[in-house]
Simulated assay, not measured.
Amino acid sequence: MRIDIVSVVPRLMDSFFAHSILKRASDKGLVEVHLHDIRDYASGKNRQVDDYAFGGGAGMVLQVEPIARCLRSLLAERAYDEVIYLTPDGERLAQKAVNSLSLKKNLILLCGHYKGVDQRVRDLFVTKEISIGDYVLSGGELAAAVLADAIIRLIPGVLNDETSALTDSFQDDLLAPPVYTRPAEFEGVGVPEVLLSGHEANIEKWRMQQSLANTRTKRPDLLGEE
């Protein structure tokens, strides 16, 4: 997979992709992440990429021209499955959408900033709009990093144990069950005996029961019980 991230402050994401699972995915050649600075496509001595909004109002808007140059440059090089704009008014991100995106080959993630991008960018280039929650960030960089992380960890070979991703919360519209590791007892609190039994069928049954109980308590909406 190749992911191209377009931003006015791409260096914000340097360290995010240089560590842990995401770095391992890159080192294995399973994913390429390329960061693009919109200012590199701006004209003029000052490389201006934003301006005041027509009609007045507070805040600056990212201009259509430098973004269009950047996106057209990328689109001329290869076919992209999606051009995704990270925006608070997009479709709220859910695991099913992440699963689908993890099967794609080439993605562009466009980060908004200030008051967002000129609407013509969205009309002419964007194929999907995604929000990571009902709140506003200073820019789309953190949202792009969240989306990229959620996608990359699902690529076969990225996780040491590929079944790990299949048992995550939300994969079956359920929250994950409690998990335990050594020591078997801590300050008088022990691990449930079933997990120490070695009886695989009983363990799986317990985990399903715990997932249902956890979901019913914390996220009944996932079970249609809200």
Rank of each mutant, 00 (worst) to 15 (best):
D4I: 08
M13H: 01
F16S: 02
I21D: 00
I21V: 15
L30G: 03
I38K: 03
K45N: 10
Y52K: 14
M60E: 05
V61H: 05
V61N: 08
Q63T: 11
E65G: 02
C70G: 06
L71R: 06
S73A: 12
L74D: 11
L74C: 04
A76P: 03
D81N: 12
E82V: 00
I84F: 06
Y85K: 04
E91T: 15
E91S: 15
R92P: 09
K96R: 14
A97G: 10
V98D: 03
N99I: 03
L101K: 02
S102T: 03
K105V: 12
K115I: 03
G116I: 11
G116E: 10
R120P: 07
V126H: 11
T127K: 10
K128G: 09
I130F: 05
S131N: 08
G133I: 09
D134N: 15
G140V: 05
V146G: 01
V146D: 06
A148L: 03
A148H: 00
I152F: 02
V158R: 00
V158L: 04
L159P: 00
D161K: 14
D168P: 04
P177W: 11
T181M: 06
R182S: 10
G190P: 06
P192N: 05
E193K: 15
V194K: 00
L195H: 05
A201R: 14
K205C: 11
S211Y: 00
S211W: 01
S211D: 04
A213W: 02
N214Q: 12
T217N: 13
R219T: 01
P220L: 11
L222I: 09
E226I: 10
